[in-house]
Write a protein that binds this DNA or RNA. Structure first.
Lengths: 238, 238
DNA sequence: ACCTGAACACCGTTCAAGT
DNA sequence: ACCTGAACACCGTTCAAGT
């Protein structure tokens, strides 16, 4: 019956089960708590057992990234490249909100995982199908940078660094301590300047979603303009 | 004379000397080689001696970031906000090219170090002096994100992740291995599509500086347009 | 042949013993 | 009072000994 208890507790280990447990651990305890030893313990397994399924911790992280990227909605075909791209990027953003450790993990590792390559490839395909030259599509992908994966490096985003999910504290410049505000008057001024609908809502921090869409649309509108103008990088001085 | 040799080898330790040595170590050996123990050894000092001048490793990293940000040219006053901002961002980019570990270090820590706050404050000041409302300046700062500090999270940038300086290998999509190119045709297509001046230069990778300026100008042009139109975030549905 | 405990080579940091 | 060696509580990963 010890036998039976064992089989109950540990369903056979697999790469998939390891990756899902790792993602769950990172979501709940923060990425800094993700060690091979902690992960093994969560799985009721000896640390060395993990190495049967993942070569090392870096490969584990790559696998976790692919789990996350796999959660992004597929591109829904449509006539309008702009809405297709916009919609999918906002979907990616929702996914990353559930996995706050992922942006930093993606940035700190090479991005050439299968799921990321497939994602990027389909996004390029959307631009090409929308009539973009390969040349313009190339530069546009660079200009979008990681924003095409639904995240941006906000200047004041503590939640992301902590790698925890949970309450979205408005820790934008609005939270400037008094002494800091006095020394940096321009920051203090704009901290409470997101007027939005209700002018009286000052010092509330800012609306992450609004800021993201503002920046995204700034880029997409500019890209649309270049596309309509038939922009090309040729003839520029080298 | 042992006494003398000692004083020669170790000029008195100071926070400044520690930070400079740490930056040099990260530049030369990569950020992953920066440990308190390695740093102490470089300084000819016992590891615990560092803790007299920096509280812990996180504070050391903050100090290193401020050393780097301090190298960015000051804003040169001028009538045109766009050129002022553009110029300083490109200066910041040059600085960060000398410290390839810095972008990831900045992203992985909170950005509220004195030098970064001063930098951001002066950039906001430039927008305000250019006639921007505090409201627009707020959203513009968010939209610029870390690009205002001269870096962007490029999708294929191995050098940055390695944290080493050195030869800038063109490891853009151009370097797609054959098997990968076959599975991701759109990526393969745009990889060699940066026509630039000479149409025959295919598969050369891409010009980092061009891509950065392309994205920067896309943003600045869009921002200029909003500013000229008197854009405001009021009246949007909440 | 497979699995796994102990061990190795590191970390950042605490703390008590030495001067 | 100051400095610092040893120690603590961790890492990722190797390797050899056990089944």
């Amino acid at each position: 019956m010890v036998e039976q208890a064992d089989t109950l507790r540990r369903t056979p280990l697999s790469r998939d089960r390891i990756l899902r447990a790792a993602v769950a651990l990172a979501n709940e305890a923060g990425i800094e708590s993700l060690s091979m030893r902690n992960l093994a313990q969560d799985l009721g397994v000896v640390p060395m057992a993990l190495y049967k399924h993942v070569a090392n911790k870096d490969e584990l992280l790559d696998g976790m990234i692919d789990v996350v990227v796999g959660e992004i909605d597929p591109l829904v075909p449509g006539a309008d490249w702009k809405h297709m791209v916009r919609r999918r990027i906002l979907s990616a953003r929702q996914v990353l909100r559930r996995h706050p450790w992922a942006p930093l993990a993606i940035e700190s590792r090479n991005m050439a995982t299968p799921a990321i390559l497939a994602y990027l490839d389909s996004m390029v395909g959307a631009f090409r199908a929308g009539g973009f030259s390969a040349d313009l599509a190339h530069h546009v992908m660079h200009a979008m940078g990681s924003r095409i994966l639904g995240f941006s490096q906000e200047l004041f985003d503590a939640a992301r660094r902590a790698g925890r999910s949970g309450t979205t504290v408005p820790d934008s410049p609005a939270a400037l301590p008094p002494g800091v505000a006095a020394r940096f008057p321009h920051l203090a001024e704009i901290a409470t300047a997101a007027s939005h609908d209700d002018e009286s809502v000052v010092g509330q921090g800012c609306d992450d979603q609004f800021e993201f869409e503002f920046a995204l649309d700034l880029l997409l509108d500019g890209i649309e303009r270049l596309h309509q103008q038939g922009w090309t990088s040729s003839r520029r001085p080298r």
